[in-house]
């Protein structure tokens, strides 16, 4: 069939399942553009393959398994990406594994492998791009495939698209609130005067923060995002060169801010001199970033011809899933 595309979904946690559910919900619309068939789904413990493609109902039922539960299915196999590629030859590789900022693995190897197998890549995993942005882009160009990554930064707002659409601008600086978890926590602390650990507990309980919140609180997530944005605007920086100050805010700091009409925000920035950092900053209430609360994200782009500010949703699971799907649609058209 013309425009038939086979997809492999690698990583089947909350985002992976939301993406698959969305794919089934939108399959009617997508069919007008191309025939998409999910031929492989893999989680950390196993994988299931179906060369003819899983039906929408089969996909929905996979989403109802316990986390890391693919292995419980009788037809499942041990996770083996090489075997996956030899058995089902996907055209589009959707990488939704968790980020590992030390090695980039398993996402980095998965993406390299996919590109070398001439599959387009759509990733919501930031780590491989934060660590090897230009290498991966070069490899993709060489293999004539695309990498979609619009869900990696401000997933609920078309920031990456906007940046790619202003290529003639020279971007001098970027300042942003790029992490929804820490912004939610800081907003709770300011509004309810609760300690940071209590704000974290709330964020975890309602599914905003991960059980292991260190990637958010130590600034890795925001740092990775500022690296990706910088690379998109051709201001290449390395993740290891981003100065990270972990989020550590006491109630006394919040009280002081209230007295002085300031707010504390966890800001990620790229300065005109190339310095990049992530740190808690006291902002005046008049600062456009100061009023960005809860799970909202914002970014202020300083260019040679003016400033652009974008406020919108960060990457919750639904927004991320939508962006991943839009990237999939983008690469197959």
């Amino acid at each position: 069939m013309l425009n038939e595309r086979k997809i492999a979904v690698i990583g089947f946690g909350s985002i992976g399942r939301t993406f698959v559910r969305l794919l089934t919900a939108k399959s009617h619309y997508i069919k007008k553009l191309a025939e998409l068939r999910v031929v492989a789904v893999a989680d950390s413990k196993g994988m299931v393959l179906k060369p003819s493609g899983f039906s929408d109902y089969e996909l929905i039922k996979l989403c109802e398994l316990p986390l890391s539960g693919l292995r419980s299915l009788p037809e499942s196999l041990d996770l083996d990406i090489d075997l996956l590629y030899s058995e089902v030859q996907p055209d589009i590789h959707v990488e939704l594994t968790p980020a590992n900022y030390e090695t980039g693995e398993p996402g980095l190897s998965n993406i390299v492998n996919a590109i070398n197998n001439h599959a387009h890549v759509v990733t919501a995993n930031k780590a491989p791009l934060a660590l090897r942005f230009s290498e991966l882009m070069d490899l993709a160009r060489k293999n004539e495939v695309k990498i979609g990554f619009r869900s990696t930064v401000m997933g609920g707002t078309p920031l990456i698209d906007m940046l790619l659409s202003i290529r003639s601008y020279s971007v001098e600086s970027i300042h942003g609130i790029l992490n929804a978890t820490t912004n939610f926590m800081l907003t709770e602390m300011h509004e309810k005067l609760i300690p940071m650990e209590e704000a974290l507990r709330r964020a975890q309980a309602i599914g905003i923060a991960e059980t292991d919140p260190r990637l958010d609180l130590d600034g890795w997530d925001s740092a990775a995002k500022i690296v990706i944005l910088s690379n998109v605007v051709r201001r290449e920086i390395k993740l290891q060169n981003v100065i990270r100050e972990p989020l550590k805010v006491e109630l006394s700091d919040i009280a002081e801010c209230l007295r002085n009409n300031n707010v504390i925000k966890y800001v990620a920035a790229l300065e005109p001199d190339g310095k990049a950092y992530v740190k808690p900053m006291k902002l005046s209430r008049r600062d456009p970033l100061a009023g960005v609360d809860g799970t909202l994200n914002a970014v202020r782009i300083g260019t040679t011809i003016g400033e652009i500010t974008l406020v919108g949703k960060g990457g919750g699971r639904i927004e991320t899933a939508h962006n991943v799907l839009d990237d999939v649609i983008g690469v197959m058209l």
Binding site: P66, R202, I206
Partner: peptide, 27 residues
């Protein structure tokens, strides 16, 4: 259903975590 048992356990564990202290609002 082992599948149901696993999912009940997962959901209960998340709530147990949330209940380490009394809670209000969205929690």
């Amino acid at each position: 259903s082992r599948k149901l048992a696993d999912r009940v356990r997962n959901e209960i564990n998340r709530v147990r975590e949330a209940l380490k202290k009394p809670c209000n609002g969205i929690l």
